[in-house]
């Protein structure tokens, strides 16, 4: 079994407790307007546009497929800017053993791994195999998810997984649909399910600069649900890396600290004591 991996970050201090290795899988059912790495959303369709713009000829069309020459690549990301399909030519198919070979030497430096994306639950079967192999190494396994897939249907994975870091992007169904082009019913269901199962590692909500009312609705909903049980991270929207469509609809401003702090106060008043602004 193999899965498409967009990127591996050996040392990450922002993907769960302690130092962790983060593995980013390709593919996502959401299309968030503010996505900071939209190149993880779709699989490559091998149109070959990026081959033409690569300044160092690290991309080549072989038998109708775009091939990435890692050794030549200088990571200038011109290909990602060229791609019109929210994808990347640098995605590699990896087996569980391939990933273990990466993790083994890093193991002394980390507490665990975090799988992310894209939406890593697209590859839930692969994650199960990966976690089964990683857990005996004494490492914890966290899932970073947008909540599109119903976790209650993945019992075995839930048993081996140490926790889920769940995005709750909006509690208002219509606004969620507009923001990410996907229904939020499974997200809300997951929020309650994971809380009950004691598998919620943390929740994140991105606060938008010009949608204070929506920000507040979501923050209130989450805070009332989780109370003091879970870490709640309020992330300020930052326009860096956001594609044009998103900039037009959400704006080019950073959500101010004052706006974020106001939301944190609301969450605190509702009993979500572990609320922090990032």
């Amino acid at each position: 079994m193999k899965a498409p991996v967009n990127r591996i970050i050996p040392f990450s201090n922002v993907d769960g407790p302690g130092n962790r290795t983060s593995i980013f899988f390709q593919g996502c059912p959401f299309q968030c307007l503010y996505c900071h790495n939209p190149e993880t959303i779709h699989a490559c369709i091998h149109c070959g546009e990026c081959v033409k713009t690569c300044p160092v000829n690290a991309l080549e069309m072989i038998d109708g497929k775009v091939v990435w020459h890692k050794d030549i690549c200088v990571d200038c990301d011109t290909c990602l800017k060229t791609c019109q399909h929210l994808s990347s030519p640098k995605v590699e198919m990896k087996s569980v053993e391939d990933l273990l070979a990466v993790i083994r030497p890093i193991k002394p430096y980390i507490r665990g791994i975090t799988v992310s994306g894209g939406e890593c639950m697209v590859h839930a079967d692969f994650l199960l195999e990966l976690f089964k192999a990683v857990k005996p190494m004494g490492l914890t396994c966290l899932i970073d998810s947008n909540g599109a897939y119903d976790f209650s249907k993945y019992e075995e994975l839930m048993e081996v997984c140490d926790g889920v870091m769940l995005d709750v992007k909006a509690s208002d169904p219509a606004f969620h649909q507009e923001l990410v082009h996907f229904d939020n019913a499974p997200v809300i269901k997951n929020l309650h399910y994971l809380l009950e199962k004691n598998k919620l590692q943390e929740i994140r909500t991105v606060l938008l600069p010009f949608h204070e009312e929506q920000n507040e609705r979501t923050v209130r909903y989450v805070a009332q649900t989780i109370k003091d049980k879970v870490l709640y991270k309020l992330l300020r929207y930052r326009p860096f890396g956001v594609r044009e469509e998103g900039l037009e609809k959400i704006g080019r401003n950073i959500t101010t600290l004052e706006q974020a702090e106001k939301m944190r106060q609301i969450a605190l008043e509702l009993g979500a004591e572990q609320t922090v602004v990032i």
């Binding site: 040392f11 201090n13 922002v14 407790p17 302690g18 130092n19 962790r20 193991k107 002394p108 430096y109």
Partner: peptide
């Protein structure tokens, strides 16, 4: 960001 995550820093140092 590492200023806020001394635990992650100790993980690295311990491994090193």
């Amino acid at each position: 960001t590492w200023e806020k995550t001394p635990g992650a820093l100790v993980d690295i140092i311990k491994g090193a």
